[in-house]
Write a protein that binds this DNA or RNA. Structure first.
Lengths: 205, 205
DNA sequence: TGTGATTGGATAGTGTTACTCTCCAATACT
DNA sequence: AGTATTGGAGAGTAACACTATCCAATCACA
């Protein structure tokens, strides 16, 4: 398959395929001559993953490159790999100043209330802190009972996710990293739709 | 309070306050002379909401303007207002061609499986369709049991949200619109952290 | 009452991002 | 033989969220 066939198969403009190659999101084809290379199904699949990540998931090309890099070449430690992947996911928050004795007061309190263990280095802690700070700044702080409700339901979802994790290490990384990112838009859409469903039932009942 | 005091109180650059005024995200102060206007606490709060929406929630200035406009001036119909608000939230998906007999096959099947009623005009339907299409394109389609699990937990969360909705109409709009947007980053962060917590318990146990 | 700072407002400039366009010489097809 | 397409490089573009510069009209204080 030549580059124009690849572009057609993945349904993206040729110039965009060239752009992904240049940016290192897409692995080069195997060169068959000085001005020709051939591409295969792995390239088509890769482009589809790139579009999924930069589209619904909302990643920048830079973030997508990081995520894809982790899948292609995961470290030995699945936990550390997932940590790096979560750090690349939006919302990106900058690391706190290292001399701050309590950089995440809201997140710390919330996780304590939930009884959850966590690694303060994990990017999601800073993300939770920023999200909680935003709710307060906007005048709608997260109440304790809401935190408990959300935390409980999301832990049930997380437990389900982990039950389905493949055993083979490479597949596990791909499942975990892509599953974290790809299912998030589904979760948000389902909550928005559930609001509508619950509201309509309440009106009628 | 003059404009520089407002900028200091809300902790944003003065030039940015002027930008928000120009873009219509922030209501003008009351003019006290040809070159002076005075601002109050409502302006400070508004800027905080703007920063919350354009920061952790990840809205563009354009999207934030739409959301804020709906809160300021909601229609008589809460349902329609929420629908418009959800349409302004990312991920933005374009409306399907009107002559397509079945524009949302995946979302339709998913909502049928969940037994949920929905309005096909509701933007979240198109968002769910795009999110499901992305999972398939990336080679990780959402299985039926996962859909059921996610749908059930999110409906529980949605029911909780609605229970806490204020009765006064204006407060209800603000709660619903801001609550949908502001709590989403919290939900994603909590899922990411729950993965870590559940995984660590599993290893130890 | 002078005088330096600040104001609201308008206009233009900046850096980033995700493409998109244009060229090019070197093949490939017919 | 001649037209078309290729991979690759470079520059261009449009949108975005500020940010900087100006300006004449006040204002605040000495």
């Amino acid at each position: 398959m030549r580059i124009s066939a690849l572009a057609a198969a993945a349904d993206v403009p040729l110039a965009t395929v060239k752009y992904y190659l240049r940016e290192g999101l897409l692995h080069p084809g195997t060169a068959t001559s000085a001005t020709q290379a051939s591409y295969d199904e792995t390239h088509v699949r890769r482009i589809r993953v790139i579009r999924a990540l930069t589209g619904p998931v909302g990643l920048s090309v830079q973030q997508a490159r990081t995520i894809l890099g982790l899948i292609d070449d995961p470290g030995v430690d699945l936990y550390a790999t997932l940590g790096r992947a979560v750090g690349a996911l939006p919302p990106s928050v900058e690391a706190p100043t290292s001399d701050d004795p309590d950089p995440f007061p809201r997140a710390r309190a919330a996780l304590a209330a939930l009884g959850q263990v966590y690694d303060p280095q994990f990017a999601a802690v800073a993300q939770l802190e920023a999200a909680l700070a935003a709710t307060e700044a906007a005048g709608m702080p997260l109440s304790d009972d809401r935190l408990l409700e959300y935390g409980r339901r999301l832990r049930e979802i997380a437990a389900f996710d982990l039950e389905r994790m493949p055993h083979e290490p490479h597949a596990a990384v791909e499942y975990t990293v892509l599953g974290t990112a790809l299912y998030e838009p589904v979760i948000l859409a389902l909550r928005r739709l559930a609001h509508q469903d619950v509201a309509s039932r309440r009106e009628l009942g």
